[in-house]
Design a protein around this nucleic acid. Structure first.
Length: 553
RNA sequence: GACCUGUUGGUGAAGUGGUUUAACACGCUGCCCUCUCAAGGCAGUAUUCACGGGUUCGAAACCCGUACAGGUUACCA
């Protein structure tokens, strides 16, 4: 076909496309951004809720954009109508927002480079394809699905590269008349790239994360427009990221094998290539097969963003974990700069993992514990209120009804140099402090006690009535316990007891143990005196009575 | 099958040819501190960097091969 014929063809195929690419180039001028500012984007398909991997990806996008003074935008990639899910778009925005990831530009936040939903950009894509047809870089292909399948079968048997290229691209050189004939017959068609590549040539490519990669030049006649006129990912990617002036395409590494195609597409379209950053997937060892696989929404509950909300894992802790897998040196930095924020750290591409990263929930829990330990009791209380309001109404009421008491419990040992680390999720509070409210304690009734000793109720009652003063400080209190121990033939310290066990009935620790079991129903608890102070003498005695009933049963 | 990319302890990783007898963190084990626990402190946890060759005075680091793993090979993204 000569130029005139191609122009004819373009008008026949796209009679309604009146704009030229110049129109769009003008409409979306360069962004006026300072040197080094990065423009990043997150391009989810609205197929449901956000996956941990996507969350990570958008976290990376927004982090890099923010720290460079650039722009992070969100583009809904909904070119496949089959995959659409109702409310999919809202779900994405909600999930991201719950992690404080808010795009600078999007279909919701506005922006000068929209529309930010691909299904609303069809005309733009077709404008460029029309131009490609005129230039001879694209053509309509009428091959039927069965034909393509049989070619692929053939290729598999022959052990050659599978796909539509070279001699297999049957409709590459159809004449204008042949095409018109097909069109008259109402034959369905797609628009394919007429790939100019030669696989003998090796192209070199630099990925910001993976480093240098070489490929054979691309020579497949990839589909550009599907039969319904919508673009494939590849075409949309090239046009959108060019028009929206993305500087860094950050995406999962399942895309690296498409690089030769994308390089060629940008070339043919006359676009500058953005920088590419292919991130390693978040993986997990499959318990059945023992193989490493991507974290899967179907198989792994922790893959869904909603999991963290339901479990009550604090979002800042999750973000801290994401930051530690984003850059390998973040963790150590944060260890030495625990007063600083994630934003204060400068992330770089060369500190990103090249291979897959196993998702380590234990490490997350550790981060979370530390997060809680540094948080004032009042804030923990308030956030626990928010959490239980959504996921545990019953406990929410108890928390509300016992505000001061609960804050006091959460505050135990908070002001020490080494605050306690016994909760890692908001949902832990109910269990961890189950003895704190008398009502719950009555219900629990020593079921948590896992020892076999019976403690002397009279002895402890004597102590409470005659020695316990709740208005002193901790060390004064402990001295009175020692005094009481000595007066009752117990050793004042475990060391004394060990020296000469026959001399004593036990030691001060045994007395504390008895009190602890009686008033908390457990062998282990946070600081005993703090607990006693919070519940007060009357309740202490009430609990001792409960214990009495319990052992006399 | 073809094409890409990886492979350092239970996990994440540092390491870019010579103070590496392989950092740091999580986990695990032990000890210490201590009224219990949590925390904290200390120590242990890879005689060795998938395997086999090679280059070099010297390799976890460079080269080749093999194995294994992951990705792609869609009118899905």
């Amino acid at each position: 076909m000569n130029l005139e014929e191609r122009k004819d063809l373009a008008n026949i195929l796209f009679p309604n496309i009146k704009n030229t690419r110049e129109y769009y180039e003008k409409k979306y001028p360069n962004r006026n951004l300072p040197e080094g500012a990065m423009v990043t984007r997150f391009g989810p398909s609205p197929t449901g809720f956000v996956h941990m991997g996507s969350l990570f990806s958008s976290f990376v996008d927004s982090t890099y954009a923010k720290q460079s003074g650039g722009v992070f935008f969100l583009r809904i990639e909904d070119t496949d109508q089959k995959r659409m899910v109702e409310n999919g778009i809202d779900g994405i925005f909600n999930d991201l927002e719950s992690f404080d990831i808010v795009p600078d530009e999007s279909s919701k936040n506005g922006g000068e480079y929209g529309p930010y939903i691909q299904s609303e950009r069809t005309e733009i894509y077709q404008t460029y394809v029309k131009d490609l047809i005129i230039q001879g870089y694209a053509y309509p292909c009428f091959m039927k699905e069965e034909e393509i399948e049989s070619i692929k079968e053939e290729q598999k048997v022959a052990k050659t590269k599978v796909g539509i290229y070279g001699m297999y691209a049957q409709d590459r050189d159809l004449t204008l008349d042949e095409i018109k004939q097909h069109l008259d017959n109402n034959d369905e068609y797609v628009i394919r790239l007429k790939s100019p590549g030669n696989p003998e040539n090796i192209i070199k490519f630099h990925d910001e994360i993976k480093g240098d990669i070489s490929f054979p030049e691309y020579d497949m006649d990839m589909v550009l427009l599907k039969k319904d006129g919508t673009p494939t990912y590849h075409l949309a990617h090239a046009i959108d990221d060019h028009l929206m002036h993305t500087t860094h395409v950050i995406r999962g590494d399942e895309w690296v094998s498409s690089i030769p195609l994308h390089v060629q597409l940008f070339n043919i379209l006359g676009f500058d290539l953005p920088k590419y950053c292919h991130t390693a997937p978040i993986t997990k060892k499959d318990e059945e097969t023992g193989n490493i696989r991507k974290l899967s929404k179907r198989l792994d509950p922790e893959a869904a963003v909603s999991y963290y909300h339901e479990m009550g894992i604090p979002i800042p802790a999750v973000k801290l974990y994401l930051a530690t897998i984003l850059n390998s040196n973040f963790e150590e930095w944060y260890l030495n700069n625990s007063d600083k924020k994630i934003d204060d750290f400068t992330f770089t591409f060369d500190r990103m993992a090249v291979g897959g990263t196993a998702f380590d929930i234990e490490k997350l829990m550790n981060i979370s514990k530390t997060y809680f330990s540094r948080k004032p009791a009042k804030e923990i209380y308030e956030e626990a209120l928010e959490y239980t309001d959504k996921y545990d109404k019953e406990y929410n009421k108890k928390l509300k009804d016992n505000k001061d008491k609960m804050i006091n419990f959460l505050n135990i040992e908070k002001d020490s140099d080494r605050p306690r680390k016994d909760i890692s999720k908001y949902s832990d509070i109910k269990e961890e402090f189950s003895y704190s409210l008398l009502e719950d304690f009555k219900k629990e009734n020593y079921s948590k006690y896992d020892g076999d000793k019976k403690y002397d109720v009279d002895l402890i009652t004597d102590y409470i009535n005659n020695y316990l003063d709740l208005d002193v400080d901790n060390s004064t209190w402990f001295n009175t316990v020692k005094e009481f121990a000595t007066n009752n033939n117990f050793a004042a310290s475990p060391k004394d007891y060990k020296k000469d066990p026959d001399k004593y009935k036990g030691h001060v620790g045994d007395i504390c143990e008895a009190i602890r079991v009686m008033i908390t129903g457990r062998l282990k608890s946070p600081d005993l005196f703090s607990i006693m102070k919070i519940i007060g003498k009357d309740e202490i005695l009430e609990r001792i009575n409960l214990y009495k009933d319990y052992i006399n049963k």
